[in-house]
Design a binder for these strands. Structure first.
Length: 431
RNA sequence: GCGACCAUAGCUCAAUUGGUUAGAGCGCCGGCUUGUGGUGCCGGAGGUUGCGGGUUCGAUCCCCGUUGGUCGCCCCA
């Protein structure tokens, strides 16, 4: 139905558990990136189309058919960012950030790609992103990957994820390897899947991670990169592996692991899981030493990764939702003003408070319980100030007394003489 | 861009080989009960079965189209 109120395909309305999981991931990222000295940056959600077209490669699917591009009112072609890296590099060049190099940067936010939605894949999706710009040493790769590993550990999902590591070599290595692969697959082209025949022209490295069964047989006999590695590239990869071992980061060598975008060199890695169906990569990244220079900036080595927030969110344990600490329940309308004063006092002392103000006393209590409040404070219509309040704890676990005393201490002076008898189900004495 | 499966109340699902007023639970609204309270009971609102067409005496059920969802291919984090 054309006039139906509906959201755009591939977008999400996040609420409740969904957004709680989302926040769990982002909070952990912010905690961990500080431990490693990565500074927050924020770059625009849209850039000139050329920023992405040039960096990702004009022929890649992302650029040729998945970007949200549009002309603005001034006639400029703009594009909603399909990834973070290109924007980071553009900012690095635009702002002369080489004065700060090496920079360790972190960002998170929405990205946009016009793809068919499926599990773990959306048209507006969200990523965490970490980059080290201006450091060409293998120790930078190690630090970056170690941060990813620690993030997964703090999210409690390290046991569901494996780090796959490979190298794409330097330019010379990559060239030689690519030529050998093309020769190998071309010789067996008639046994190749139709998609892989196309890939042979566009991106032959991608044949290596084809899911087609017969492709996989050819991949198994395909030449590896190691035979084509220059001694410099080999030494670099060796140093990365040694560093990871020293840092206690477990990994497996994945000789068929390649990257989607043209700009990657040397280290390539993915943290993958088999818990998410077809979209198993949870963090993916690598080194992109030539990118900033090809975009018109100074020759700058760099390495980075991106992580799918939605994918990580699906892996983390059931989150505990946000809870109200105290529910204030005025027995009837006549005491609502008084209840409002108490609510204001409690909130100003840092307690999260909800006030029930609909229906009869019974209904109000139900609404309060629904907020998940641990502590209930009833305000009665009769008696002295100290008698009008009744404080009870709904959970009644070992911490109940602590919670009750906390609320009591935050009450306005005239209410503090509340009777011990008014506490329910525990031994608190308030006097 | 390609393929498979799915589409019933706000939500999760029923409806016996196509059969007459399409049901339940939860949620929502109202009432009663309950003297420290997410209880129990009663009642109520809410559906042109995604949309359009076809077959049939008759379609939630079968067929075609369309829109949307889910999963996979592709791509990629």
């Amino acid at each position: 139905m054309a006039d139906k109120v509906q959201r755009v395909r591939g977008t999400q309305d996040l609420y409740g558990d969904d957004i709680a999981r989302f926040d769990t991931v982002v909070d952990a990222f912010n905690r961990v990136r500080k431990l490693y000295g990565f500074r927050r940056v924020d770059v625009p959600v849209f850039e000139f189309t050329s920023v992405f077209a040039r960096s990702l490669g004009e022929t890649t699917d992302v650029v040729s058919k998945e970007m949200y591009s549009f002309d603005d009112r001034g006639g400029e072609s703009l594009t909603l960012r399909p990834e973070f890296t290109a924007g980071f590099c553009r900012a690095y060049i635009s702002n002369g950030w080489q004065q700060f190099a090496p920079m360790k940067l972190a960002a998170h936010g929405p990205l946009f790609r016009y793809e068919r939605p499926q599990k773990g894949r959306y048209r507006q999706f969200h990523q965490l992103d970490a980059e080290i710009i201006g450091a060409g040493e293998p120790a930078a790769d190690v630090e970056l990957i170690a941060m990813g590993a620690q993030l997964l550990g703090e999210l409690g999902i390290a046991d569901k994820v494996t780090l796959q590591l490979n190298t794409l070599g330097d330019a010379e290595t990559r060239h030689a390897w690519r030529a050998a692969l093309v020769a190998h697959f071309r010789a067996n082209a008639d046994a190749l899947s139709r998609e892989s025949v196309e890939r042979l022209e566009k991106n032959p490295l991608r044949i290596l991670d084809s899911k087609d069964a017969t492709d996989r047989e050819l991949v198994a006999t395909a030449p590896g990169i190691d035979a084509h590695m220059t001694s410099e590239a080999g030494a670099f990869f060796e140093a990365v592996q040694k560093g990871l071992q020293a840092a206690g980061v477990a990994f497996v060598r994945a000789p068929a692991l390649v990257r989607g975008f043209d700009y990657y060199r040397h280290t390539a890695f993915e943290f993958v899981t088999d818990h998410l169906g077809a979209q198993g990569t949870v963090i993916g990244g690598g080194r992109y030493d030539g990118l900033i220079e090809t975009m018109g900036g100074p020759s700058t080595p760099a390495v980075g990764w991106a992580a799918g927030i939605e994918r990580l969110a699906m892996l983390v344990a059931e989150p505990v939702g946000e809870r109200i600490e105290v529910a204030v329940i005025p027995e009837e309308q006549s005491v609502e003003a008084e209840a409002q004063q108490i609510v204001a006092a409690l909130r100003s002392r840092g307690l999260s408070v909800a006030m029930a103000y609909r229906g009869n006393a019974k209904r109000r209590a139900e609404l309060a319980a629904k907020e998940g409040a641990e502590t209930l404070l009833y305000v009665r219509a009769t008696g002295q100030a100290k008698d009008r309040l009744n404080l009870s704890d709904r959970v009644r676990d070992g911490e109940a007394a602590v919670r009750l005393l906390k609320v009591l201490g935050a009450l306005p002076e005239q209410y503090r003489q509340i009777d011990g008898d008014d506490f329910v189900g525990d031994a608190v004495t308030a006097k």
